[in-house]
Amino acid sequence: MAMFPIASNVEGDMAIMVVMVDDEGTMDEVAKACAYHSVGRRVAPRPDKILRVRRSSTGEVYPRDMRLKEAGLLPTECVDLIFSDA
């Protein structure tokens, strides 16, 4: 495993957070790590939704079980965290 810096842009937040995540982690685990720094701090929790990871530059929404290291992101590249139904 290696800690990998990403820029986390959570839907509804006014800033983008730099979050260190395990590159072996799944996108759901990435979403959880990102949410920790925004949801409940500056963004209201939405328990009926799940957060999906979307590559900011392309709009590609990653599969929930995809590993971060498979996504081909550059260090500090920005991902959007979008509240979704599934």
Binding site: D13, M14, A15, I16, M17, V43
Partner: peptide, 26 residues
């Protein structure tokens, strides 16, 4: 508990409008 992403020109946090008109973008 972590730091915000900063702009490489202004050196201040990259920010946008939150809430209903969310437009924060890098």
């Amino acid at each position: 508990e972590t730091l915000p992403l900063l702009c490489n020109m202004s050196n201040v946090p990259i920010v946008g409008t939150p809430g209903d008109k969310w437009n924060t973008k890098d």
